[in-house]
Design a protein around this nucleic acid. Structure first.
Lengths: 253, 253
DNA sequence: CGCTGTCTTGAGTACGATCAAGTACGGTGG
DNA sequence: CCACCGTACTTGATCGTACTCAAGACAGCG
């Protein structure tokens, strides 16, 4: 089906990170959004012991590809990843964008094989956890199990929100406010950030043509809702954007 | 927001079922699709002890509504349920249809409150499990935990498939083949079954107008792919339908 | 500097939505 | 039994949003 010529290498583990005096869940600013959310120090340490930290990955490098055996779950530490499928017609479908603290790969649990690709959109790193070990630990630490159920549950409702029947403007407003909210949660400005993905990716994710994204951006700019120049975005009327986004405010991935 | 006049009653438990000599997971034909999949007899018994079985519910009766506190998970035993949201404009969005053996309510875990409604489309019954107890048991029985992760993982990938950018024909082909596959798994004919939902519900679920569903059904019938009369459907060219459905074959909920 | 890829802008088109009749079924009451 | 009604569905005609095709602008880079 797809050319396997450019096969993914296994993501390389950074040994310095793995020995781990530099980085740990307990000192990670994302811990309150991520897998170890709400765990006490000891339990967090046990999660931490499962974590392998990747080396820096560059734009275009893949975490996994369709058909790869599902072995581990990835938590974004730095950068942005995109997950996408390619259908039998060769069309790409962007499934989501993943910011620091978000988990990637959970949709592969049921089949044991990845049904999507995950690629870095910029310079990025992940924490990697063996699913087998994570599942086992989830049996022992109820807080971890709860958090895993919650994260998966959130993925389900977010995906459902995206599936709704909305206009191009509604979709794009929802997309921008979702990014705003997520950056805010991570300690960044909710009103000014960079779009790490191309117009084409945004369009594909929202099921629009790239031209439509351009046009709606232009309209939003004319209406003084945003100021956008290439990849840098400033939101000037967040409330109006939230209004336009309706209930889709919960769009996420 | 919504009129609370027609508030849901708590679903009534059938005491005969609850005392439970008539029904148990171990004698249920759906056990191999449902929560207790793959469990040994003793573990299945422990799941069974958590189950409360509902009385018969009639078309239009709700299992839960938006805003209800999330207390338990529902497994369909008989009939079909529909889950849907109502957005701020009052538009209804159908999130999925649930056949016997499928779980309802998992999307509410992360917020603790239901964000969707679930209603019976025909005469139906469910098994109900306290989420708190289920979560606790998932800590003790690894096979149960695995199955819960799998079921949630499947919901995630199914929702993603529906979100894709497909034509009306592709969507409807995918919808019909998905039903076919699911009925088949449940021991029914994959080629002949009743559509328990209205054209309007199908359209809403697939983000189409009811008129479009009618027209595509008519076209499929003209092309000898299906024979449909009101709610009864016969698939006469499953392979062609599967072709049209592309990778969306995995649509489900 | 010209090349390349990304993005924007414009013009025409198409798919599915909307609006509007018309039909068939199921239920109710006479 | 039939007349009536309401709802669900179908079919037709028109419309509109977003897609497609095409050309041009702009930045990054050798």
């Amino acid at each position: 089906m797809l050319s396997q010529a450019a096969r993914t290498h296994d993501v390389r583990v950074n040994p310095a990170f793995h020995s781990g005096q530099h980085l740990a869940c307990s000192t990670c600013s994302l811990a309150e959004l991520c897998l170890p959310m709400g765990l006490n120090h000891d339990d967090m340490q046990r999660v931490d012991d499962l974590v392998e930290r990747s080396e820096l990955m560059h734009e275009g490098e893949h975490l996994f590809r369709i058909g790869d055996r599902f072995k581990r779950v990835y938590a974004v530490r730095v950068g942005t990843y995109k997950s996408y499928t390619v259908d039998s017609e060769g069309r790409e479908h962007v499934l989501g964008f993943h910011l620091p603290g978000e988990l990637i790969g959970l949709d592969a649990i049921h089949s044991g094989v990845h049904r999507s690709n995950a690629v870095a959109l910029d310079t990025a790193t992940v924490c990697m956890l063996s699913y087998e070990a994570l599942d086992k630990l989830a049996g022992e630490i109820s807080g971890l199990r709860t958090q895993m159920f919650k994260l998966m549950s959130k993925d389900i409702s977010d995906a459902a929100a995206l599936a709704g029947d909305f206009t191009a403007e509604e979709r794009i407003a929802a997309f921008l406010t979702s990014l705003s909210k997520r950056y805010h949660l991570r300690g960044f400005s909710p009103l000014e950030f960079n779009l790490t993905m191309s117009r084409r990716d945004i369009a594909n994710f929202l099921r629009l043509a790239p031209e439509t994204v351009s046009r709606v951006f232009a309209r939003f700019e004319k209406d003084k809702l945003i100021a956008v120049e290439r990849r840098s975005l400033r939101i000037t009327a967040l409330t109006k954007l939230l209004d336009m986004a309706h209930c889709v405010g919960e769009i996420h991935a």
